[in-house]
Design a protein around this nucleic acid. Structure first.
Lengths: 349, 349
DNA sequence: GTGAAAGCGCTAACAA
DNA sequence: TTGTTAGCGCTTTCAC
């Protein structure tokens, strides 16, 4: 611990200070302050005396000592890849609020998108004896999560899940979302559709791609892997992949972006290439943010219910803590919704 | 603590388990594991033996016990009014990352904009013996912050500060920002300028209003309090105040919004009233978000350096922990920047 | 080179 | 109705 050398926390007054001030033993003081006066038939005088002394000394029971004694920390851990990303901060918020409601405090950690950091953080959190863990994994490795779970730690993974896993997971219905998106494009007559994808190897990306393929297959349209580009959820990546697709395949009439930033990048590329949306190019993206309504061309999106992802995760860890067992149902899919706006139009005939 | 009744944390293997497995005493095991083998001249054999045993048992030293013994928790607290707000989550992120870098873990708490909740949370965090505290106060009361500081807790307040306070504070240069905004509008010939303000009584709002008044005064333009409306930083509030101002004072040619959501609300109101931006109405707002570039009319903004607010706060608490003293300089102003885009135009002549 | 013992602040069995 | 005692898991004197 690099924090080693620093100055120690100023000592507060302790329970025994209070006891001394009130002229009673530590146990009596403890009982009086914890509302056990009834149960132990402590005299009203004593109780009041103790409480007054505590008040006067500004006594705050040390949660550290309490945790050690009770073997319960009242701590819940959250790990996200990037707290500055509204998607993750919304999840973090819901979990934090739920935790506070349940009398827990939330330790929040930012893995910065690195699996290595994620491992370290999860280790640290276990050392701190968090009583449960909500993690939005970077999404490429899961053994450390499984490990923590096997040690008996209630854990739920959110968003970037793992297929066929014993982990408790909650994520949006990416498959259905991608199908919804593609169906809308097909209904509007589009046949050559480009896909701007996110981080490959993560379940959201893979499932969405599967949705694309299945919808095309059902419509009897061959899937052209040439029309898929990109490897990140960022604006930059969206821009470059869009430019690439639009120049190598000028017959494209629509673009399906896997994230809002990807779509913004696509907008930029389109405007540089002199393509108007939706007249020359339809655009549709996964994820919905408040701002898209105010865009030049309001974006049609597949909206995830982000707060619900967080709430469900919180509910699942809470239940595990209460029952002591992981839920029977492992994979929790949260429905998505098509938000139809102006960026998708009929294919130019 | 409502969390009382739940199941206790599964016990991990402890130091004495490791010691037993290695056939040494707890003290030796502790020293070997903490890299004090040199200092205590522990034999290499013993050291390796201990480390192997620890490894084999999956030993993770209990931070709880450690904290109690060392009187140091390695915990830092962060309190924000709304983690779902990108402004605060960006700050939280910077502080969290800085904390992790310094070997600390961050406990994050969401006050939901309630002073009462804020008080409770700060109490809880002190009971948990956080070693320092970064808080984005709701902004209307500060005594509990001053109190925590006087107990010797390194504390810095971010954003919603208090004038003439002994608190260590970091906030944007709201006054300069508002002046920048007003100057731009004046340069473009605007004389009747409406102001959509945020939560009254908070320093950001008050300072920005002051900036408005001073700039007008300097230009010899009378300040008309009728042209100020609003009481929140939300889209709703912006919409209603904008409608109100634009209908009661149809001679307005520009609107200065104190937040991005306020500005979005104003956009909605303007479009409903058939006012085009910037031809009929110029619009300018405080705060810059990535999205404004993609708006129908890209917004001219006063950009706060939000990450820097967080980083500076983190630096200030860290220094306080190291030196044990609050910094001499109390108020830290972070510069703002004018981002000129399309939403401000010449006044129609 | 290593161990025994004390103690961080609290709670809970047991005793009175 | 209250006090004594032990112990949560760890570090650190002090002793050998």
């Amino acid at each position: 611990m690099p924090a080693q050398k620093l100055k120690k926390t100023r000592a507060n007054s302790t329970l025994s200070d209070v006891a001394k001030a009130a002229g009673v033993s530590a146990s009596t003081a403890s009982r009086a302050l914890n509302g056990l006066a009834q149960k132990y038939r402590i005299s009203e005088t004593t109780e009041r005396l103790v409480k007054e002394s505590a008040e006067r000394l500004g006594f705050r029971p040390s949660q550290v000592a309490r945790s050690l004694r009770l073997q319960r920390t009242g701590l819940l851990g959250i790990v996200v890849p990037d707290l500055a990303n509204p998607f993750f901060s919304a999840i973090a918020r819901e979990v934090t609020v739920a935790a506070e409601l349940g009398g827990f405090s939330a330790i929040l950690a930012d893995s910065g998108g690195s699996v290595k950091k994620e491992r370290e953080l999860i280790d640290q959190l276990q050392a701190r004896h968090v009583e449960s863990l909500v993690v939005c994994p970077v999404g490429l490795e899961f053994d450390h999560l499984a490990g923590a779970m096997q040690r008996g730690l209630p854990l739920v993974a959110v968003d970037r899940c793992q297929a066929n896993s014993s982990l408790v997971q909650v994520t949006s219905d990416h498959l259905a979302g991608a199908k919804l998106a593609m169906q809308l494009l097909l209904e509007n007559g589009h046949r050559r559709i480009g896909v701007l994808q996110g981080l490959p190897g993560t379940l959201p990306t893979e499932l969405r791609r599967q949705g694309v393929r299945e919808t095309l297959a059902q419509a009897g349209i061959p899937f052209d892997p040439q029309l898929v580009a990109g490897d990140q959820f960022s604006e930059q990546a969206g821009y470059h992949s869009a430019r690439e697709l639009l120049t190598t395949s000028p017959d494209l009439t629509a673009l399906f972006a896997m994230s809002t930033p990807n779509a913004f990048g696509a907008c930029r590329a389109a405007s540089e290439l002199g393509l108007r949306i939706p007249q020359d190019l339809s655009l549709l993206c996964f994820d919905d943010v408040a701002f898209v309504e105010f865009m030049k061309v309001p974006l049609t999106t597949i909206a995830q219910d982000v707060p619900e992802l967080g709430r469900r995760a919180a509910k699942l860890v809470t239940e595990q803590m209460q029952t002591g067992n992981p839920p029977r149902k492992k994979m929790h899919k949260i429905p998505v919704k098509l938000m139809s706006r102006a960026s998708v139009g009929k294919v130019p005939s």
